[in-house]
C-alpha cells in the first residue's frame, strides 16, 4: 500500500550527508530522489526512493533549476526539511 500524501521530512546530516541522491530526468518536470541510504538520515525521516521533491525548507522548488535546488539543500547546513510525495501522487 503506497501512501500518496505529501510528507514533511526533517533530517539531520550524518557522516555521509543526508543519505539520498537528487536526480533530474530529461524532459520531465520535477526532481526525484533515489538511492536513499538504508537507515540514513533521509530514510529515518521517511523519504522513499522515487519520491518527488516539492519543497526545501518550506520553499516550493518544483519550477526551480536543478542546480538551485541542490544549492538550497547544501546551504541548509546540518538540517534540512523536505516536502516529498510519491511519484504516483505527483
Amino acid at each position: 500500500k503506497v501512501n500518496h500524501k505529501p510528507r514533511v521530512c526533517k533530517m539531520v546530516k550524518g557522516p555521509s550527508g543526508f543519505g539520498f541522491n537528487l536526480n533530474m530526468v530529461k524532459n520531465k518536470p520535477g526532481l526525484f530522489i533515489n538511492e536513499v541510504q538504508r537507515h540514513g538520515p533521509a530514510d529515518v525521516a521517511g523519504v522513499e526512493n522515487n519520491d518527488v521533491l516539492v519543497e526545501v525548507n518550506g520553499v516550493n522548488v518544483i519550477n526551480e533549476p536543478y542546480d538551485n535546488v541542490v544549492a538550497r539543500i547544501k546551504e541548509s547546513g546540518d538540517t534540512v526539511t523536505l516536502l516529498v510525495c510519491s511519484k504516483d501522487a505527483y
Binding site: 550527508g17 543526508f18 539520498f20 541522491n21 536526480n23 533530474m24 530526468v25 530529461k26 538511492e35 547544501k74
Partner: peptide, 12 residues
Amino acid sequence: NMISLVTQKTKL
C-alpha cells in the same frame, strides 16, 4: 527505463 534518462545526479 527511467534510470537511463537521468541527466543530473547529486549525492546529498
